[in-house]
Amino acid sequence: MPVVELVAVTKAYERKLAVDRLSLSIDAGQMFGLLGPNGAGKTSSIRMMMGITMPDSGQVKLFDKPFERRSLDRVGYLPEERGLYKKMKVLEQLIFLGQLHGLHAEEARKRSVDWSNRLEIADALDKKTEELSKGMQQKIQFIGSILHDPGLIVMDEPFSGLDPINAVLLERSLLELKDKGRAILFSTHRMDQVEKLCDSICLIHNGEAVLSGRMREIKNRYERDHVIVEFEGNPAFLTSDQVAEAKNFSGHAEIRLKPHGDAQKLLREASSVATIYRFELVEPSLEEIFIRTVGGEAYA
């Protein structure tokens, strides 16, 4: 049973078509990446899921039912445009957000303390929000969005502004929630995180879905035409006839082969001029797929 489903959803603002007949579906226990360049229609799609705006046509379904506001009590939302009440104390704010999602004050307090301990931010509970750093505020907002244990968690750029340690804490929390059967949708530009965390993706461009499906199936559609080489010595092999494009990062090179380019030939050429520590034929990264699909200019 899909937890959230968009069926041919369209939304236009004046003359701009923000979302064009977009369909997608996310099941329980699935981590889903919504990708696209800036202005592709990601936030517009999410806002329709959250009932903040209504589609001009098509249908939004939450928990296998046509959208109704009551269902939002089972949804956690961390928008891209984040904010908290600056003058409120953190614990009061979390209780308030929990209550808005139907929790009793005491239960909201208990869960707030519990999550704050897990995200190593318990010291901040008695402080005013304005006293916290941006990263800490982001963790508080994350807690506020999952306090009511929602079945669907929607996160727009959840890792932006977090240092690597806190990003790992957040990743772990999301994986835990996924393992508990929660459906998680996140929209991001961080392809490495999508590649690591998501089971399925939908790439939208100019409001349309241009690539969607399970991550493995998508990757299998592409040839293994990429080579990672770690080497020491002369980099002359990077200009070989087999190579379409190469990036050299001081002994770590990422190479895209020409169509029908011969990897074995390239390995011979490389080993003749340099010491090779690693030579791996890989499928294109999600970032590469993204750029190939929407074009480098749009992503820039």
Binding site: I52, P79, G83, S145
Partner: peptide
């Protein structure tokens, strides 16, 4: 204006009309 500046609206609108 403060809520608009602090961008809290979108969080709130996910639960409150």
């Amino acid at each position: 204006i403060q809520e608009k500046t602090s961008r809290i609206f979108e969080v709130m609108l996910a639960t409150v009309k």
